[in-house]
Design a binder for these strands. Structure first.
Length: 343
DNA sequence: CAAATTTGACCTGC
DNA sequence: GCAGGTCAAATTTG
């Protein structure tokens, strides 16, 4: 059956292939005028991202990408680990979609963030979001208590993203951060108006990365919630993400800020003032606020759950893996019109 | 004084 | 019953 979805699927792959070719052309053009190691590095990553995207969409025709590069920064993501049990739950629960399991299907992923002892033993730095601590618990068998944070804008913007922070027993400079749910708030409005100056080389790199950003934008699922905002003003992934696919194989994601050349994309400099217990996080995305009950009784609306899950494909690496493109999983009323889904 | 944090109590799932 | 997660009143902070 050649469904419209299959057609769009092939279109996405075709666009990715074309994008990769154009990136190569751009790279050869730039290198002919001003060869640069940074450009080589960035091009490798751009191509790697394309390959990974293609791999995800069409695993039979592509080989696994190389591993990601490490980062040299005061705060570095040691790794991002999607917890296989969460993924397994997500897939297993598809058939039995009750409220309890829906909650489990919230995109969840874990990162380990290492901080420099001199500037971060109190906690890793800002991840670009505003979090409010709402609890702390001593965990059985853990030396350090676990802290619970939720988005500051939960009430204002109905944003249900939460995170748990726990210092590693083995290495006190490592914090294990578990993110649950994705931000539906718009915190980009807190970004500084004037970005720091950017060198010409960085501008060139940014131009290339903009192509990727557009690609990411074109791949986003149009949730059409009434909020027509497009790509966020700032947009980044943690330096290295390792995601597991449906077979629990890890897929390594290197990003555009990994070598520090594209710091302008990092939420670290765009972020509002936040507590010291903030870290890297997936990029924010922009969703409409949903009316709905809140509070103690775990009664967030079904819509919010659906949005949290599916909209996360735009910004949450795990979210995207959590919910493969499968029409059966999507809201039947999902506005999958071609003009909205593809640019 | 408003916002953020702390912390004991309460709720939920296993 | 226990452990983890969350609430909400009290307290602290800016």
């Amino acid at each position: 059956m050649e469904s419209a979805c299959t057609l769009e699927y092939k279109t996405v792959i075709n666009e990715l292939v074309q994008g990769m070719e154009k990136a190569k052309q751009l790279h050869s053009h730039l290198c002919s005028t001003s060869p640069s190691r940074a450009q080589d590095l960035l091009m490798q990553r751009i191509l790697s991202s394309y390959e990974k995207a293609l791999l995800i969409l069409n695993p039979k025709e592509h080989t696994p990408p190389p591993s990601a590069a490490a980062v040299d920064s005061p705060i570095s993501v040691v790794d991002g680990i999607c917890r296989s049990e969460d993924l397994n739950n997500s897939f297993r629960d598809n058939q039995d979609y009750n409220a309890s399991k829906k909650r489990k299907m919230q995109p969840t992923w874990m990162e380990q963030v290492k901080v420099n002892p001199e500037n971060g033993l109190e906690g890793p730095a800002d991840d670009g979001y505003s979090w409010r601590k709402y609890g702390q618990k001593d965990i059985l068998g853990a030396r350090y208590p676990r802290s619970y944070y939720r988005c500051t804008y939960r009430l204002v913007q109905n944003c249900w993203a939460t995170k748990q922070v726990q210092r590693s027993d083995d290495d006190p400079t490592v914090f294990e951060i578990t993110y649950k749910g994705t931000h539906t708030c718009n915190q980009s409005t807190n970004a500084p108006v004037v970005p720091p100056p950017v060198s010409q080389e960085k501008q060139e790199l940014q131009q290339q990365s903009q192509a990727l950003l557009k690609l990411k934008a074109s791949l986003r699922v149009n949730t059409d919630t009434g909020n027509s905002e497009t790509m966020p003003a700032h947009f980044s992934f943690p330096s290295t993400y390792e995601l597991c696919d449906t077979d629990n194989h890890y897929i390594s994601f290197s990003d555009l800020v990994g070598d520090g050349n594209l710091g302008a994309y990092s939420p670290l400099f765009l972020s509002p003032a936040t507590s010291e217990t903030n870290y890297f996080s997936p990029a924010p995305h922009h969703m409409a606020s949903f009316g709905g009950s809140q509070g103690y009784q775990h009664t967030e609306s079904d819509i919010a759950d659906i949005v949290s899950a599916h909209a996360s494909t735009t910004n949450s690496p795990i979210g995207s893996m959590d919910f493969p493109i499968d029409p059966l999983e999507l809201d039947p009323n999902f506005p999958f019109n071609t003009s909205g889904f593809f640019r």
